[in-house]
């Protein structure tokens, strides 16, 4: 019933408040960024026992706080389930949604959102028990599949089986937690979500080594942060924070060498650190916005590595998420 009340409250918010287009000003006045996060997915958004949040999406939010306030800790993380996340953003409960959310056309248009870019190129996969002796998703005809509600995953699953004339019995759960628990209890033969999620969830199973991730990737899942439609200034701030992190990796600016880089004579780096031009002011931020992002959070490569890559428990290969000049497709427009 809580959900019903939340949505009633949303209707009241829509009715009472005339949509504010001044998100950046609101955030500055509040002194705190409200960030819609996952809360249960290792590598993307998960609080530890001390309440300290870590993850790729979490660091995206920290980077925005660093760009605005010069302090990466001025973020309040709001954990959201997949099916409640858009309502929370639409109603203004959070300033942005950084919750491993797939960028699709209908979400961009009819949901009233704007996706700022892609911070992780993902795709949907399947995990099964080794004892089933299944080596390919194409052998899953007739299987029961546990899936989380309110996701592109739910739709891709149906498309994948339908296109191959295969049958699946889907069992849908409100949260990823419930779905993975039911899979672990033997309710389903397979569990499906984005491949990064499969590796993360596998760590939480009773016996992680009894399960394998099948090789097929059945969809494109470009994950990225999203903001409300209709506030271009805020859209730019969030978009260019992400671009700055990717550009920094390309320029070899890291959290370790950022202080030396401020003395650099390279024009690209001078524009980045704000010793040339007024690119920060154009965004409504300070001159050293990008310096703060890198100093307090790090560049895209550092963030990827410590949350999902080689420096983390997940050890996911960078694959498509390598920079464009290193064989991947991560590419950011230049700051100039």
């Amino acid at each position: 019933m809580n959900r019903i009340f939340a949505i009633l409250a949303l209707a009241v918010v829509f009715a009472a408040q005339s949509a504010s287009a001044q998100t950046l000003k609101t955030v500055k006045d509040r002194g705190m960024l409200n960030c819609g996060s996952n809360g249960t997915l290792a590598g993307f958004g998960l609080p530890d026992a001390q309440g300290k949040w870590t993850g790729l999406d979490v660091d995206s939010c920290r980077a925005i706080a660093a760009a605005i306030f010069g302090d990466a800790n001025k973020v309040k993380f709001v954990p959201l389930s997949a099916k409640d996340r858009f309502t929370a953003l639409q109603s203004g409960e959070v300033d942005l949604l950084a919750r491993n959310t797939t960028w699709t056309s209908s979400r961009d248009t009819s949901l009233g959102l704007n996706f700022v870019g892609v911070n992780y190129y993902d795709g949907q996969g399947f995990m099964v028990r080794k004892t089933l002796k299944v080596n390919s998703a194409l052998e899953l005809n007739g299987a029961s599949v546990c899936v989380q509600q309110g996701t592109t995953t739910e739709l891709n699953l149906s498309d994948f089986f339908r296109a191959r004339n295969m049958q699946a019995k889907t069992v849908t759960f409100a949260t990823a937690n419930e779905a993975i628990k039911a899979y672990d209890a033997g309710r389903c033969d397979a569990y499906t979500t984005d491949a990064s999620g499969l590796y993360a969830e596998r760590l939480r199973l009773a016996n992680a080594n009894d399960h394998i991730v099948l090789p097929e990737i059945i969809s494109k899942e470009p994950l990225g942060p999203a903001v409300r439609h209709g506030d271009d200034q805020w859209f730019d701030v969030v978009k260019w924070t992400l671009n700055a992190m990717i550009n920094a990796e390309e320029l070899n600016i890291t959290s370790k060498n950022i202080d030396e880089m401020t003395k650099s004579t390279n024009p690209d780096i001078k524009r980045f650190v704000g010793t040339e031009g007024n690119y920060g002011e154009q965004l409504g931020l300070g001159k050293d916005w990008a310096v703060n992002i890198i100093k307090h959070v790090g560049n895209y490569g550092e963030v990827f590595d410590r949350n999902v890559g080689a420096g983390s428990l997940l050890k996911i290969d960078r694959g498509l998420n390598k920079l464009w000049n290193k064989g991947g497709i991560q590419y950011a427009p230049p700051i100039r």
Binding site: A11, F14, K83, T87, R107, L111, Q149, G150, L155, T172
Partner: peptide, 19 residues
Amino acid sequence: VQVFTGTVLNQTGQAVEVV
């Protein structure tokens, strides 16, 4: 509630109508 205010609401984003 699971099918309609869960999946349908999320896929269409039309909270007010669905609820």
